[in-house]
Design a protein around this nucleic acid. Structure first.
Lengths: 182, 182
DNA sequence: AAGATTAGGAACCAAATGGTACAAAACAAT
DNA sequence: ATTGTTTTGTACCATTTGGTTCCTAATCTT
């Protein structure tokens, strides 16, 4: 019952996620953020609370948009082995070294921002569960605790790869090395 | 032939390394930095160039002080297996979640700061070589390429662990999981 | 058409940022 | 003791920071 907003909430939020993902929280100033979201200060502070609040919303958006898609990929993967499915995780575009927003958040925010940390931890747990699901689907012997261990190992490896990738590390044949690992 | 400086260069540099390691580059402002180094603006800007320059110097200091110590530990480790030696890598103080300065730098600076990135990459390579050295010492069959692969895997795992540890992740029994890995 | 209500945008603001200027202080050489 | 040279610390500065104000524009309801 008034003037309708001219921008789409989710599109703007997606822009915020993108720039935070790429640059991190502190390296992204308001002009950067507003530009990425495609709106001006007035609209921004009207629709969103402040910089920290939208960072947290961007994390949620990442959860819904990116993590969920990855989880679904792992759940529905029809590869011929667990390794083939998990290798998909490691097939990120080499040229676009944004890394992983979860990992970036963990490193930049640490435990200083508890809200961000717990969101990151929760998303990491989702990924681990999905990885474990893949391992379970393809394994004959159902040693659950061992699968959890292995899944955690793969997750740590994934974060390590994302972290190292940000500084322009080489792309590797992860399928081969996952095979030698599992 | 003039007034001597009242602070020790390396001590101050050590303080800088410490605060950057703990907080990152952007999250550390001048007051933080000066406080950690134990000197005032005047002395700082006389002895060091500026914030970015000392960050790079802090990376070098990390290389000399921390990485070298780790490399030496790996080279002289008299554990009864490669796993026992490598497990030392993962035994960082859980309460002190600074992570790894190399990993932190990779994630925060990315390829934006080329100097920082290449220093980080170089240090990572040193670690990988040392890890490979451990694997070689304890392996019977001398498949070099395979050892390089394995070393790289352990290094990625190490960075992953450091990254995830920053957000307050749990400590794990890395010796056990390294055993299942290698 | 009128009024209510919300979005948009520009001007503005206080605080914090990294960095500089400069005078006082402390030493070495003479 | 005087001079020359370097360090130290404070006061200062321009810029950038995230955030607010407030006026205008646009739409819905009636």
């Amino acid at each position: 019952m008034a003037r309708p907003r001219e921008f789409e909430y989710d599109t703007a939020l997606g822009g915020a996620m993108d720039i935070f993902w790429r640059q991190g929280y502190r390296a992204t100033n308001l002009p950067d953020l507003l530009n990425a979201m495609g709106l001006t200060r007035g609209s921004f502070y009207k629709a969103f609370e402040d910089k920290e609040a939208i960072y947290l919303k961007a994390l949620d958006h990442y959860d819904v948009q990116i993590v969920s898609r990855t989880v679904q990929m792992l759940e529905t993967c029809d590869g011929e082995s667990a390794i083939a499915c998990l290798a998909e995780l490691f097939k990120t575009d080499a040229s676009d070294n944004r890394g992983c927003f979860i990992c970036n958040t963990m490193v930049e925010m640490g435990i200083e921002n508890q809200k961000a940390a717990s969101k990151a931890n929760a998303m990491a747990a989702r990924l681990r569960d999905a990885i474990q699901g893949v391992l379970r689907r393809f394994s004959e012997n159902g040693e659950i605790s061992e699968l959890t261990e292995k899944a955690d190992l793969v997750l740590h490896l994934y974060f390590g790869k994302q972290a190292m990738g940000k500084s322009g590390g080489q792309t590797r044949d992860w399928e081969a090395r996952l095979r030698s690992l599992l």
